[in-house]
Nucleic acid binder design. Sequence first.
RNA 1: GGCCCCAUCGUCUAGGUAGGUCUAGGACACCGGGUUUUCAACCCGGCAACAGGGGUUCGAAUCCCCUUGGGGCUACCA
Length: 545
Amino acid sequence: MSEKVVTRFAPSPTGYLHIGGARTALFNWLFARHRKGKFILRIEDTDQRRNTPTATRQVIEDLHWLGIEWDEGPGTEGPNGPYQQSQRKAIYARYIKKLLDEGKAYYCFDSTQELEQLRSRVKAEKKSFIYPRPDKYPSHEEALKKKAEGTGVTVRFALPRKEIIVDDTVRGQIKFGAGEFGDFIIQKSDGFPTYNFACVVDDALMGVSHIIRGQEHLMNTPVQMELWKALFEDIKLPKYAHMSVTISQGGGKLSKRQKPKALLQAIKSNKQIDLVKLAEHCNLTAEALEDFINGQAVPDVPVIDAMAEYLGVHLPEINVIDFLQNGYLPEAMVNFLTLLGWNPGDGREIMSVEELIESFDIERLTKTNSLFDRKKLLSFNTEYIKTISKEKLLEHFKDYIKTINSPVSSDDDELLGTLLEINEGARTLAQIETKCRFLFYENEQIEYQPKAVKKVLLTETGLAMLKLVRDRLAQIQDVTEEKLEAMLRSLAEEKQVGLGKVAQPLRVAITGTTISPPIFNSVKLLGMENVLIRINNTLKKFEKE
RNA sequence: GGCCCCAUCGUCUAGGUAGGUCUAGGACACCGGGUUUUCAACCCGGCAACAGGGGUUCGAAUCCCCUUGGGGCUACCA
């Protein structure tokens, strides 16, 4: 208990940080903070083909947004660097050699096809595949020769043949039979280590004490343990905690595949779509699009997003950045994500980061997989918008309007603060932004929603009422919300109608929609001059019709 | 196919390690009502679960077994 806790988050940079990864990072971070330990960020970029250089930066940005800070990692160098596996090749080579020298690993020359054949044969026998270990290991000279000949050379770990028991914090003791695992590759033919190897070496060298990860890694654990023991006799094995995973509505793990899946569904369910135009719009060849529709290939994320936007399809948010772009607060995300597979046990739900750190422990991790419920997240977000400090909310709002390139752009903190205030009760920052756009448009830029016009303006009283409102507005000196309210109320009373009958035409006239912040605030903020111009524009446009 | 994990309201979960205090609690969603200048927010009320079967026991949501269902892994991906 007294020993120092060291946890890590080790993403492979293949795209944006997704919700599942964020949750794993969060749990590791929370646990480290709770136990006053250390949290390391390590980038697992050993797959030359899949990693993109921008992805690392994006992952880092997403973690920053969530407020997850690491004690060691890229940008925060510590004694255990470098923290990108692609830069640790020499270290891995040393340990590969050590195993080779000790006869605990051996060279292999099989081609992909040969391995595939072996596998399919075993599959036919309904058994699990175990690589047949050679009686005599190839020598170093042989390996060099093969390599020179152009044959791919890999290195396999000679896994001790025995029962392995994993002691998992979440799941208890799990037994794996001696015949379940075979000798696995620890060094690929491109010279890079495989995940299982690099992971063990780094965890040991970096002093990781607790490995908290998704249950998809449970089957990796026994072989990693054996590797660890073969490599580092004197370093104590870490504690493992395999948490439940987050699954999505349609079933299956919440993953990157969700987006293309949703898009594909939308395309297939709508026969009206002009595929030629779609491909053109998204800079996609007709063949590539066809492949996608036939399930042959999946385009890159930006292309997927572009298609969705073009088609007006709402894709499920699965990446952290999606939530930023949809107006969620990081505090709400953190709180919500932590409650997926963990709870404090006393019924509390809305908890600050400080409270989470205070209460979080891996002892209360849930065993069951959980569904990511967007509605509940929304309610958390609403709660946070309501209760977070004004300064923080303003900061988030500015961040938000910047990232989405909103017409609501202003350096005037006071104005933005007012916008937030009059939108009390909003569920997302996106909602606030949409409702306030009208303030930032030119008067002539207003687009009238046909539905709003029909329902509010082109009625028996709509336009006539708007005229009346205009005339009375023009008479008000030194506009205040109170005066506006008094005027509109007395007008409603005079005409024996509800306030809606007078307020709605005005609202549509100045915003083009039926939805806006409270009308008195809206008028005041727009300024009387603009209000009158917009009313006149509206009257001119619709009186003829 | 093989191996592993899991199983409480629609969803997230409390309760399970120490079986009775559980006619199973909370939150979100949903439904009904209220408030209201729009969208929200807000207030009040309601619906709703121990997957099925067998044991053990005076007694089981809780322990054991089977079935079913869900999830994961089964790569020179991580």
